[in-house]
Design a protein around this nucleic acid. Structure first.
Lengths: 223, 223
DNA sequence: TTCATAGTTCGATGATAGCCGAAGCATCTA
DNA sequence: TAGATGCTTCGGCTATCATCGAACTATGAA
């Protein structure tokens, strides 16, 4: 019974945290629910078996999200009924602003700007995304060649896709990975638009004034 | 938490039984859920406290119904999510056809025809009903005088309302009670349109051929 | 390789809550 | 009035299940 899944307070807290549409790791959901990771793991298995959430593996993390908008709307309906008797919940805030803004994920751009770039590419129809797989369009190839002097045809790699959706740690949405993602980041560095923070171990990426302007011209947020 | 209420199997069965929109007694809901009346009583209290159902007292019975269509739609949504993993439920059937068709409730007409009469009166705007209270309109007074020779003004009673909504046992919808309901039933008998079954203890009301025709002419079901 | 971190599995514990028997209250019937 | 029926309250039993400590696996970092 699916209602019993939502009925447990710990699971309910987890689901509420996922209502934002963002994906969260198992540990984060554990903390969100105020329980230990072991207990959370058990709950997450049940929720997954019940078809309410689905996992996405990312390195040693497991990101969970609601399986669809219908789940969210049912949860909303339940919350609406509960509101008659008085209930509420709060949300958390961010930290490490620079890291959230732009950082290196392996070898490509992540963070707010990384997500923004992939969003813009989708909007400009430079790529087609279906679930996890991303494909460069003809427009996309032209764009890469003209704007960034990147030959997409030269990026083929036996064990790594050209384009890949990578779940963003801070934004919990996809950014661009794969050999193209790496090539773009390399080009940004060559053009002195952006460079990794010199602090050892830091993953922060600092954009120059000019780089920020150029980046916005190519991948600015939609109006 | 409202989801926990729906989560329990026994309560879920009760709610499913109420999804038809009809009101059911505590005992019936107990049977529906396969539990004893004591246990059912506890569950019903919880559901009522949670605002999912509301009781209507009728003699020594307590009829429960869902508090509103929003509750039903949330339950439907939950059932939809559950359907992904496979679930089902069945419904029950009727019995005692004659009793369900027309019978005496205290001193007024109940059963299919009783409900049909009140429905028709509402449709013809002979009465205005808001929740439990029913009020005769000007049209209604004229109708009663002309069609049935009943003077509504003479029906006032110190301790009993002229019109009252009475929850129907078999139909689980309201029929007309009060002094007017009694007067109408008396008139039906006087006109030989209908009479109580002579069997001792029986509450069945038998309509004559002519009575059935006349009744249909006045209170026939809407097209 | 070695260490650290994210996550899972297993087993034991404990509290919540469903359940029913017995008894009590309220209402209708005779 | 007495008896029957519908429903509720109370008390105790029991089963379920959430919880966490400990141990294990997998991935990434040094």
């Amino acid at each position: 019974m699916v209602a019993a899944l939502v009925g447990d307070p710990a699971r309910s807290n987890m689901l509420q945290a996922l209502m934002t549409g963002r994906a969260l790791t198992a540990s984060e959901l554990a903390q969100e629910a105020g329980i230990t990771p072991q207990t959370a793991s058990s709950h997450l298995s049940k929720l997954e078996a019940g078809g309410l959430i689905e996992p996405e593996k990312q390195g040693r993390h497991r990101y969970y999200r609601l399986t669809g908008p219908d789940v969210a709307s049912v949860l909303e309906g339940l919350a609406g009924l509960a509101a008659r008797a008085g209930h509420m919940r709060v949300r958390t805030g961010p930290k490490e602003p620079a890291l959230r803004r732009a950082r290196i994920c392996y070898d490509h751009l992540a963070g707010d700007l990384g997500v923004q770039m992939l969003d813009s590419m989708r909007r400009q129809k430079l790529v087609r995304q279906t679930k996890q797989t991303i494909e460069l369009t003809g427009d996309g190839r032209r764009f890469m060649a003209e704007a960034l002097q990147i030959d997409a045809n030269a990026l083929a790699h036996p064990r790594r896709p050209v384009c890949k959706a990578c779940l963003d740690w801070s934004e919990r949405r996809h950014h661009l990975a794969g050999t193209l993602g790496a090539a773009v980041m390399t080009r940004f560095a060559e053009l002195k638009w952006a460079m990794r923070d010199p602090t050892p171990g830091s993953r922060v990426v600092n954009f120059s004034r000019n780089g920020e302007k150029r980046f916005a011209a190519l991948f600015g947020p939609g109006e």
